[in-house]
């Protein structure tokens, strides 16, 4: 009907279905939109498949025992690995946060321009160093050179170094992005730099820093290579930090290729994978909640 109307319409040159216009252009525009969407299917389908299979293999036998028992023979649970993962993660988070936040604040607030630039480049490069290379660094320095043998502390330090650049970059970004007015205002009122940073900049930067810490935790917890090279393996909870320990990614790495005739090794691996995915999602949700909470709080403060 639109075509009907367009005949003899003086405004025919802007009508969609007017004859004589290059309609192909508009068809292409639409087709491209749908074709591009296929890329999402191509990526999301494998993701969904993976989540499905991890659930399928892990859940039927997932009980409280999985969380509370140590691995014995080919059975048991993941208790020591869960504990080991958290010991390593807490230590490495402390290391990474300490170094990353201080260095990030320095880069954003104090460093001369050139030093700051160099620091940022170093941060990016450190983030790009393959985990396995960091693993060899920790392996040589903290396992072989020190003659400590495989131990939990070496793993925590190596993982901490792996996590540093993420915290560092987040902190740097957070302080650089504090609005200029806030800074000028605070300093003009006679606040010292310390007061400015603590009372003005830190509250504003906090959500970004915390997001960076959570991101670093999620990535660090998912790393395998640095730990394989430094922590060793044990199926009991360590009594001190210079002993080896189990950890969740290691459970997958050590058990993944046992055929099903070897009892529940592979099931344990999938249960570890299930837990890892859960924790990653929890950390991601945590980031969202924290930044939303802080945003609200800040808005309340500002008015």
């Amino acid at each position: 009907m639109a075509v009907q109307n367009s005949t003899g319409n003086p405004a025919g040159d802007i009508l969609r279905y007017s004859p004589g216009h290059l309609r192909l252009r508009f068809v292409i525009d639409k087709i491209v939109g749908w074709v591009l969407l296929l890329a999402f299917l191509a990526v999301l389908f494998p993701l969904a498949d993976m989540l499905y299979w991890v659930g399928e293999k892990a859940l039927p036998t997932f009980t409280m025992n999985t969380l509370t028992l140590n691995q014995v023979g080919t059975g048991g649970g993941l208790h020591s690995m869960i504990v080991g993962t958290f010991i390593i993660l807490i230590l490495s988070t402390v290391i990474a946060t300490g170094i990353g936040v201080l260095a990030g604040m320095y880069t954003a607030e104090f460093a001369p321009r050139r030093v700051a630039e160099a620091g940022r480049v170093a941060g990016y490069l450190l983030a790009g160093v393959p985990a396995i290379v960091l693993g060899y660094f920790g392996f040589y320095l903290l396992v072989i050179y020190t003659k400590w043998d495989y131990n939990t502390l070496a793993g925590a330090i190596t993982l901490g170094i792996f996590m540093v650049p993420f915290v560092y970059r987040a902190t740097d970004l957070a302080f650089v992005n504090v609005p200029h007015d806030q800074r000028e205002g605070a300093l003009a009122m006679g606040a010292s730099r310390f007061q400015y940073l603590r009372r003005v900049a830190f509250p504003i930067a906090m959500p970004t820093i915390l997001s960076g810490v959570f991101l670093a935790m999620a990535l660090g917890m998912g790393e395998t290579a640095p730990l394989v090279l430094t922590v060793g393996w044990s199926n009991t909870v360590p009594t001190n930090l210079l002993q080896p320990t189990g950890y969740l990614t290691g459970a997958i790495w050590n058990f993944y290729d046992f055929p099903s005739t070897y009892g529940s090794f592979q099931t344990l691996a999938f249960q570890a994978a299930f837990l890892l995915i859960l924790i990653v999602i929890a950390l991601n949700v945590g980031v969202q909640i924290i930044s939303e909470h802080y945003r609200r709080k800040l808005r309340g403060l500002v008015g």
């Binding site: 993976m50 790393e223 993944y256 994978a273 890892l276 999602i281």
Partner: peptide, 24 residues
């Protein structure tokens, strides 16, 4: 939503992709 999903994908441990690839 898709931005969130792709970002989440970045957090999934490589070893989990590994066991899925190996077993499935």
């Amino acid at each position: 939503a898709l931005t969130v999903v792709t970002d989440l994908l970045a957090g999934i441990p490589s070893v989990v992709f590994g066991i899925w690839g190996f077993v499935v």
